[in-house]
Amino acid sequence: MIKSRVVLFILAFVAWLLFCWVPDAQDIIAGVFVALLVSILTGDMFVKRPHHFGHLKRYLWFIYYVPIFLWECFKANIDVAYRVGHPDIPIHPGIVKVKTNLKSDTGLTFLANSITLTPGTLSVDIDREKGYIYVHWIEVKSKDVEGATKMIVEKFERILRRIFE
């Protein structure tokens, strides 16, 4: 798995350069050694499928995903501010179950993070074999699996499938 080590080396080196901005010669030399050490020690723990880093389409979908995600975050904050500031605290919480088709680690992690930061939902646990995510919902609108899946997961899943699968 020399390829995943190369990818990890490049990622670690770029992160090092960002941490010691503006980099001069000493920083770059030290960074090469540190990134080599990291990539040799923890080679294929992080990067499982290195050929994915060469696909340009994935980066374009990721750039498309970021503004949607930030806009949903902003809406979530307005929603929480309304519920907290209202005198009667209008909440009907509960834990529902949603279904997902994603399989890879990174995809599931990003899906759970997106669910947590979007309006009114918080992912609690993941069932890897059957593909279920348990979601705490502050305003339960439908209790069955299909309705909840349609309202919570779908808008992210169709983008994330193209990035990480």
Partner: peptide
Amino acid sequence: LWEKSVVDKYQ
């Protein structure tokens, strides 16, 4: 969960 919660599928 809170006693006025609607549903708890996890439990």
